[in-house]
């Protein structure tokens, strides 16, 4: 294998594999690497030799493999590229994780650094920009599944503008932190982030409309302290404290 200044795609795959193995099991062995990449052990030793020539890994036959300092940096770089691409596919294009993973694997080697930076920034931008945001992405998903006409655009734009104004008004908006629905005070609104209850209970809650991302408002607590009245999707629901403690929410910025 010729020594080039740039690592070959396959060597990058090796670095990535070693990186993940080290993370998982503290150390990488030839056998594990071979298993992970679906190659023969002989190919692995060849690659390891090439990597150790470039002083990226410490390798002696029959010993565990560790990174050198520059090796770790190189591996991290590959991993970062992979996850940036995968993020883009999953978050923006709404591709499922498995396909995103394999596509990222194929593309990570050929994407140049400046292009990669763009991907990262764009993902960030879509999430932050009030004109886009996660809602916009979901709109895209709907667009993919259905023929969409642009008849709700004014409303959508208007709500976005409202939100921007509101955000500006709450300049020092507190960091979003997860808390239990049960800990909210009457009058407080929050967004459901997850439901951690027994299967049957979670299922029922979701069926009643408590899906992730739904806004709920605590209306009041019953005179005896339990249950709690909440409002979601335009209707009122009574929930016992026990269940309310298994519903995790993020307080809205208001």
């Amino acid at each position: 294998m010729a020594a080039t200044s740039e690592l070959s795609a396959s060597l990058e795959d090796y670095l990535e594999a070693i990186y993940h193995l080290v993370k998982e099991k503290q150390a990488a062995r030839v056998k594990d690497i071979a298993e992970r990449l679906h190659v023969k052990a002989a190919s692995v030793t060849g690659a390891l030799r090439a990597l150790s020539e470039r002083e990226l890994v410490n390798y002696t036959p029959y010993e565990i493999v560790t990174f050198t300092r520059s090796g770790e940096a190189a591996a991290l770089d590959v991993v970062r590229r992979h996850s940036a691409l995968k993020d883009f596919f999953v978050k923006i294009l709404l591709v499922d994780e498995a396909s995103a993973d394999s596509a990222a694997c194929a593309m990570e080697h050929s994407v140049t650094r400046p292009l990669l930076e763009r991907f990262v920034h764009f993902t960030q931008f879509v999430e932050d920009c009030p004109r886009a945001g996660t809602k916009w992405v979901r709109g895209f998903s709907y667009y993919c599944d259905h023929d969409s006409k642009q008849d709700n655009c004014e409303k959508c734009m208007r709500t976005n503008l409202d939100e921007v104004i509101q955000k500006k008004a709450n300049k020092g908006a507190q960091a979003m932190t997860e808390q239990q629905l049960g800990s909210l005070k009457p009058g407080q609104k929050a967004k459901i982030v997850r439901v951690a209850l027994a299967d049957a209970a979670s299922r029922r809650l979701v069926e009643m409309g408590m899906t992730v991302g739904t806004m709920v408002e605590v209306i009041k607590v019953a005179p005896l302290g339990d249950p709690v009245e909440i409002k979601l999707r335009g209707y009122h629901l009574s929930v016992r404290k026990k269940e309310a403690e298994g519903i995790y929410v993020e307080q809205a910025m208001l």
């Binding site: 209850l197 027994a198 049957a200 029922r204 809650l205 249950p227 629901l237 009574s238 016992r240």
Partner: peptide, 8 residues
């Protein structure tokens, strides 16, 4: 095991 959810 079912939660008490009651519409008001």
């Amino acid at each position: 095991s079912v939660p008490f959810l009651m519409e008001l």
